[in-house]
Design a protein around this nucleic acid. Structure first.
Lengths: 230, 230
DNA sequence: TCTTTCTCTGAATTGATGTTCACTTTTACA
DNA sequence: TGTAAAAGTGAACATCAATTCAGAGAAAGA
């Protein structure tokens, strides 16, 4: 034997794999899932089309992994935001706000990951991602419910409905189209968060200071934990 | 000239066009939009593939028309149910309940019409359908708001969120999978309707008798107007 | 430097469907 | 019954992107 992988090579392979995933992600963020085709992604990652297949068995696997990554990052962001909150109600508010902010901040990517038509089958990955995020919300609803802050309810269904409301109102085809205006964006996030919280029985979240404060900037691309005491 | 369309022929042509649309609809209801391919649909309508193109310029047009038809029927059902209600709050409840019931009753079709990936571009048609339905809900929210039954709010955003909550919880990938059980189905519809109404600020819709009554059968395939006084 | 093995390349292949079109069948009416 | 126009047929075609693969290029060690 005259060839054995050195650490260098191992690292380079890993880096290249990441580069492909990253290229796919950027492509999706810019042009939606429809734009995520092997040739353009490969080109963006500075490799040949065939090379992609040395790292991913198929386009479906590539996109599935992309979806899983995005979902996991979201779950972690939600968890961080909620765990930093002082009580169950504000934890729930923080979780919902986090989703809302992330989703509006990366609409194209969110739409692609969540719902945009793709030619290959990624339902399993999407389902898992949704499940993980819904479970996170469900946990917070349960906690608030047990603390007596929410009426008794089917938490699984409630979590699903909350997510649906957020997605449809913020990235669905009917979402407002003027969200590039930061003021409008903040108002929209706040309104939708209020709606979602009200759905599960939070009374007057705004008065209780549970949601985004007026004038507070929404920063994109980082863990978001915007809320106040509750 | 020795050929001119008789009334008979005109009728036969119209009937055949309907047969193709109907075949597409049935195919979608059974196998989702993915199953709506020219060859199977033509076969189901008992015509050749080429014949479809004598009635529809392209597959996109066929599916777009299917979507428009379903959406329009839905709008009419919502309007009937809401108009039959005694007051603004119950009209809103009736509208929401109608959507919920229809959507669970024809999950595959609803999913196909609303969100399922399709290889051709039907975004315009979907957007129109969603807009029409959202407008219907928005109208009812506005009425209830003006009557002082709801807090002041952005009705467009509220209507969108309501629709999102209904869809995600009832036909989305996270929807309960045991909706074939009629009891479970009724409970689910009721729960989700409550969530949706609560989101826009309806307090305790159940106690006020605004939603599906326990024991009331949900019939499918016809205009639904299930509610009581309000 | 030479050989072996791995990795990369990108043009060619494949597969799946929407779409077309030369031909057949049907229709209306003289 | 004959014939011109319309309607229907379905096999062939076009398209488009995922996938493959034979050969080129690098890397490791003798």
């Amino acid at each position: 034997m005259v060839y054995r992988r050195t650490h260098q090579v191992v690292r380079r392979l890993a880096a290249r794999r990441n580069a492909i995933l990253q290229a796919a992600r950027e492509t999706a963020a810019e042009g939606g899932m429809a734009a995520v085709q092997i040739a353009p992604v490969a080109n963006r990652a500075s490799v040949a089309a065939g090379t992609v297949y040395r790292y991913f068995p198929s386009k479906a696997d590539l996109i599935s992994e992309l979806i899983a990554d995005v979902a996991q990052a979201e779950v972690e962001a939600i968890r961080r935001a909620a765990d930093a909150a002082p009580g169950p109600s504000s934890a729930l508010a923080a979780a919902v706000t986090t989703i809302a902010v992330h989703v509006v901040s990366h609409r194209k990517l969110a739409w692609g990951v969540l719902a945009e038509p793709v030619d290959v089958d990624v339902t399993a990955s999407r389902l898992n991602g949704r499940r993980a995020i819904a479970a996170e919300i469900q946990t917070r609803i349960e906690a608030a419910m047990r603390a007596g802050h929410l009426p008794s309810q089917d938490t699984a269904l409630a979590a699903t409905a909350v997510i649906g409301a957020l997605h449809e109102a913020l990235v669905g085809p009917l979402a407002p189209d003027d969200l590039d205006d930061p003021v409008k964006l903040r108002d929209t996030v706040q309104t939708v968060t209020l709606l979602a919280l009200r759905a599960v029985g939070v009374l007057d979240a705004r008065a209780r200071g549970l949601v985004v404060q007026a004038g507070m900037p929404i920063r994109t691309g980082e863990p978001t934990a915007i809320m106040s005491a509750g």
